[in-house]
Amino acid sequence: MNIFRLAGDMTHLASVLVLLLKIHTIKSCAGVSLKTQELYVIVFATRYLDIFTSFVSIYNSLMKLIFLGSSFSIVWYMRYHKAVHRTYDREQDTFRHWFLMLPCILLALLIHEKFTFFEVMWTFSLYLEAVAILPQLVLLQRTRNIDNLTGQYIFLLGGYRGFYILNWIYRYFTEPHYVHWITWISGLVQTLLYADFFYYYFLSWKNNKKLQLPA
């Protein structure tokens, strides 16, 4: 474990806590894409398949349970909790996210480190996570103004993978034979997808204005 990875995990944890806080306290999921949340459930479900078979550390298992539990409960809230579900704008959140999964599974079957069920599933979850934010960013373009919590959620979610990139660079230079091109490239693509959001988020913060992405 290194400081970059810890910062990444804490930023990721903060993003799901911000979203849970928003949904649980103000009972609103306005501006939040259910499609992205559903993709994240699949990302965690396919990435942590080995949660009971391979033990890395208490920290690792605990965080996996937290990410699994939070992503499932966010989807549950947005789908089945009456008050929250009412604030979900279904008309705007129309990204066909199931179509995102197909290329990811095909790519995972073609490009992976080992052709085993667990490894292909794990690689699929990496590719899927790289594009999971797309429905949320599309929704953001459509809903004119978004509230601070949703903006912070997206900012933290994008930032965590940025810390992971620093972690991979650090591990590359400190651990011999630590080379994982698949992880590095999909992590880089994932972070780059946030580039324009980061730009407009920074502008809104600098000019102290509401965050608005250009249509």
Binding site: D50, V56, W122, Y164
Partner: peptide
């Protein structure tokens, strides 16, 4: 033998 390399990152 290289032990089963499990993924140690989240």
């Amino acid at each position: 033998a290289n032990e089963e390399e499990s993924h140690d990152e989240l």
